[in-house]
Write a protein that binds this DNA or RNA. Structure first.
Lengths: 342, 342
DNA sequence: CTGAAAGCGCTAACAT
DNA sequence: ATGTTAGCGCTTTCAG
């Protein structure tokens, strides 16, 4: 099968010669620009197939589009992100665009480097999950290339955003715990640099909302915010300290599912059970429904968010300029990791 | 910070003018080719910084390298693959290369499209996890660009491979079950198209080895191979049929962890426990050690495999031509999902 | 050690 | 509807 043969050094020139037409004609056919007769399209298509021609994306990138969309993702190890990606992939697969992913390397979590790498490669559009990059930088970037940011709550003028309603989700989770009768509810979240108040970062909003709900419920005295490094293992260690220390909380609301899993492990390793300490997460990653995990959590429909982001990006590429901000409604999923306090 | 400003249309020409040198000089400095005086390097570097110059990768790609490495991955939803990626990322981060990921879209699992997309983009090297592409195609590809294949056991001449010893791993798993006293051991694996005997695909080797061990142990009559579509949910449905049907096996060896999680769920939903049916997986994904999952499985060190692959690729790019095939030794991790038969 | 000049493969005017 | 031509920004001989 010719189309399965890896590209040799076949150029558009070769195709033109084979088909007995000009390079411009070939160019028009492959971009299906209009102004080509059916006959010509036919001949060119045939020539492309017999020669196994593949357009050189670098060359295209120098004049027009690369037909490449880039997505920057901070940690693929957190299963929530692959879900986002699945949504984007699905939405893009029908388009003529190819998606490439730039993983932010751990040394540069903010994502500047990865996003820049994408732009350096002349992608036609960028989706990014970088809660920590500065809005001003993004505006400047968006002036260059269409941009959609995920999980951001800032009111941008040059780029689009898709986020879930972190306040509503957090309220549902906290309401659930309080309704069960919990009062000693701790919040496990990431380092302070990632939860700057007013930054619009999801974790920051969840934290603020946690505090608000506690206050509204007259539980000011029970507010307890615990910081932990990224990852399940770190969360487990931190939770172990919390659980074995004085005044063990009866419930822990984790900023997202990954650390929640670590908390569950800490609970088990401390010889405790969900009857002793309840846990709530955020995201509803697939494993949360596993019978041995059974984590109560807030579902954000990652695939939907990803799909939406891709659609917005495609719209932008097609020419839209008014910014759009989509907010997706999250939904609490109650499982057995939450019980009434002992 | 200048380097944090998104690239404007600053070209090498601009840098050359700013520094008062020729374009060629700038080119040499950014590639740090030799033949540049310290003074010149200094001036050029300064000019680059003040102008916020970013090399245009497309333009570079037309003559020389793109400093981009591509990795093709079939399903990011399976947590094993992000581990591979972490290894690759780590190994590459110190190099001048940028890594981009091309997710194989579900409609083209074999990965031809994604790999081709990478090559079309003039990457300087390719790592791929495509058990199903044909060796001949890969050889042709490898003649064009350095290639390292993951999980493949074929004896290639033009590209490198890194794989774990699937036979050894499977033998450890099966030995464990048999030593526990199991005789009715079923094997849950993927569709037949993915387990063609002699194909060298990991799943095929695990299947063959399962059969061998059963025969060697005089359990020919108990050989039972069950096919299931990709994903946890499908595995759960399939396992439910197996568990509720006649002659329930006392143990299930799943081709990898993802379906094993589905089996565990099926067991729980059928009102059974690990005391009734044992489960073994393959991969040792992070969640396997969660107390509620506690899956006995075969550890393949994904990060190590990824790191190795990246190192081999870098060697190839540096000029090595003799093929290398690395086999990584797997190791059984016993947890509580396996018990003696009832 | 440095600069001038020739393309790489393609697209986008502009002709025809 | 089709062909001609001028670059895009860079690397790479080849001179100086």
């Amino acid at each position: 099968m010719a189309s399965r043969t890896p590209a040799g050094p076949v150029t558009m020139e070769d195709v033109a010669r084979e088909a007995g037409v000009s390079r411009a004609a070939v160019s028009k056919v492959i971009r299906d620009a209009h102004g080509v007769s059916a006959a010509m399209r036919e001949r060119v298509t045939t020539a492309i197939a017999t020669l196994g021609y593949r357009p050189n994306v670098s060359a295209r990138g120098m004049r027009g589009a690369t037909y490449t969309l880039g997505i920057e993702i901070p940690e693929l190890a957190n299963p929530f992100f692959p879900r986002l990606l699945a949504g984007v992939t699905a939405a893009v697969s029908a388009s003529p665009y190819q998606l490439i992913v730039a993983p932010a390397d751990p040394a540069n979590v903010e994502g500047y480097r990865a996003i820049q790498a994408l732009v350096d490669r002349q992608v036609d559009g960028v989706i990014a999950v970088s809660p920590l990059v500065e809005p001003a930088w993004l505006e400047a970037l968006a002036a260059t290339v269409p941009v959609v940011m995920l999980g951001r709550h800032d009111r941008a003028s040059g780029y689009d955003t898709v986020a879930n309603d972190d306040e509503a989700g957090t309220r549902q989770a906290m309401r659930h715990l309080i309704d069960l009768g919990h009062r000693d509810i701790a919040h496990l979240t990431c380092e302070e640099t990632k939860t700057v108040p007013g930054s619009g970062v999801p974790q920051a909003i969840r934290l603020e909302t946690y505090r608000e709900v506690m206050r509204e419920s007259g539980l000011d005295a029970h507010i307890r915010v615990v910081r932990t490094p990224t990852g399940e293992a770190g969360a487990c260690r931190t939770a172990t300290r919390l659980l074995t220390g004085p005044e063990r909380p009866t419930a822990i609301f984790a900023s997202h599912d990954e650390p929640a899993l670590g908390v569950q492990r800490a609970i088990a390793e401390a010889g405790l059970t969900p009857m002793d300490v309840s846990v709530v997460g955020y995201d509803d990653i697939e494993i949360a429904r596993h019978p041995g995990v059974s984590l109560t959590t807030v579902n954000q429909d990652g695939e939907r968010i990803g799909r939406l982001a891709a659609e917005l990006l495609l719209e932008r590429i097609a020419g839209r300029t008014e910014p759009r901000q989509e907010i997706v409604r999250p939904e609490l999923v109650v499982r057995s990791s939450t019980r009434p306090p002992p």
